[in-house]
Design a binder for these strands. Structure first.
Lengths: 115, 115
DNA sequence: CCGCATCCCCCTGGATACTG
DNA sequence: CAGTATCCAGGGGGATGCGG
């Protein structure tokens, strides 16, 4: 699936974006790397309590196909793979900030937390 | 389900908000009323191509339980029900605007459309 | 006009085990 | 370390039909 999985079925830009974010762990995957914008597979796995390797790998591949995450494989032993937010991914992250503020205020009740 | 269906399981405000928005038609339901902020059931149904009455009613009830939509029933014949965005819902709508812009630029390719 | 009740299908995502 | 390979359960949501 290239960018978007429901071609021509969007009513507005918002649900087009939602289509890319759709997946239990995707916003967290975007969020974890934070300012640094890059993260290894194992680090992601540790910082997403409950995710399985299969699902994490699948969601990462979809985000990669959608052009928001870049996958860089280093030919080393032991293996190392870096996942980096693309320019588009960083901008998506920024676009999610207001939603995060809303969530903190209306769902979490103003609790302290990043974003 | 009151506000949020995954109590205490949120990594950040964003996925807390995502939990409320989670549902195939929810962002569209928020989007359709637009500035006016209010809409009838049948109007929603007509403007959401493909939605069934059962699913539309279900998602509306969840949005109501989450406090972003207010349901006003008028005792008339024929029946009339108005769905209005609450203050919280309007703010959620505003928080979704940047995401909509991003979706237009990165998914729809800068096509003209509201939000 | 505005729904609710039922039935059912598919797809996401979880559990577990194995490989380069 | 960074993944695949299977198997499987749960639930969202679509189709259809009835009720106030």
């Amino acid at each position: 699936m290239p960018v978007g999985r429901r071609p021509g079925a969007y009513l507005c830009g918002t649900d087009a974006a939602m289509d890319i974010i759709d997946g239990k762990w995707k916003v967290s995957i975007l969020w974890v790397p934070g300012e640094r914008g890059t993260c290894r597979f194992g680090e992601l796995r540790r910082r997403l309590p409950g995710v399985t390797e299969k699902v994490l790998a699948a969601q990462l591949r979809e985000l990669e196909a959608d052009g928001v995450v870049h996958r860089e494989e280093y030919d080393e032993v032991p293996p190392r793979v870096e996942y980096t937010l693309t320019r588009s991914g960083l901008q998506l992250n920024e676009a999610l900030e207001p939603l995060g503020s809303w969530g903190r205020r209306h769902v979490l009740g103003g609790a302290p937390a990043p974003r």
